[in-house]
Design a protein around this nucleic acid. Structure first.
Ligand code: FES
Ligand code: FES
Lengths: 158, 158
DNA sequence: CTAATACCCGAGTATTTTAGTCAACTAATA
DNA sequence: TATTAGTTGACTAAAATACTCGGGTATTAG
């Protein structure tokens, strides 16, 4: 199994979208700023998210991305799948052939574990995350932090 | 989170020990043969397993390793911890500081997931695995396969 | 006593994966 | 028509993984 920065970034970015793309599309530059994720890296991730039908893009000025479905219908597991982070913990990708063609001693254990992880991540929607108090608090902090930063920049410019 | 070949090998090798080290110690060479894991790599893994107090070694001819505790008291989570594969899925190792010192949007999600995985792996002992029918079948196959191989070698030698 | 066995340990290396960059392009719009 | 912002592919640096190698040391069977 691999669950690394890629999958975490993807879920974080999608959550940012759920929080901020209420009426207008949200640009990757915005997400990049709020979540401190490299813009170019986000582009890579959203390319996959779009291909998986989770987000739709709007080009041109004022453009950006928006969720295709309601956040209540988007599951964390879908997002991680979309960016190619398998939640599969077997060595054989489920084929059962990792000991020179035969099944190994622990195959079933990893299969069960994978199922557990998948069930858990499939039980949580973006809407569930948005509803959490701590998520709202963090989102609020991220916005005000940027506003303060902005003021400082303006002050320095004068 | 990383759950890779290292953790899988460690659990497999420990299960092999639980299956075969009933009265006598089992050498790494045996495990290497049965589980098709590189001997040198096994030495590395068992160094850590020994330091964690999961196995004890017996040097010299006829030596090998044995479980320190009964297999019913060894949990899969312990083994994975011992070989330094953290089951932690947060980016911050639980510190809550991955967004330049502050907590990120999805920290709690990964914390919950880590807990789930840990609970699952802590609920399964080596004895549980040994008791499974499919594990016994595979173990049986591994032994008979080696015996056949042995006969062939002997036949070729004549 | 000694040779063989099997653990012990540290250093080194090839490969793979990840995280991130760069540059050139296209579509939309103000 | 200039600017914004998505689209794409190739490329790179760094890290982690999965090993290997070589020389140890303790133990014991003969
Ligand atoms: S993990 Fe599937 S056969 Fe070994
Ligand atoms: S994962 Fe812990 S703060 Fe981001």
């Amino acid at each position: 199994m691999r669950l690394t920065t890629r999958g975490r970034y993807a879920v974080t970015a999608m959550l940012d979208l759920a929080l901020h793309a209420q009426d207008r599309p949200v640009s990757l530059a915005e997400i990049s700023e709020r979540q401190t994720i490299s813009l170019s890296y986000l582009e890579q991730l959203f390319s996959r998210l779009r291909q998986s039908g989770l987000v739709a893009s709007v080009r041109g000025p004022g453009g950006g991305y928006r969720l295709v479905e309601s956040s209540a219908n988007i599951w964390v597991a879908d997002i991680i799948d979309a960016v190619n982070e398998s939640v599969d913990t077997t060595n054989c990708q489920g084929r059962g052939d990792c000991q020179s063609g035969s099944i190994c001693l622990t195959h079933h254990l990893w299969e069960d574990l994978s199922q557990q992880i998948h069930n858990f991540l499939s039980s949580i929607s973006l809407a569930d995350l948005v509803a959490k108090r701590n998520v709202q608090d963090i989102a609020h902090r991220q916005v005000t932090q940027l506003l303060t930063l902005d003021e400082n920049v303006r002050a320095n410019a004068c």
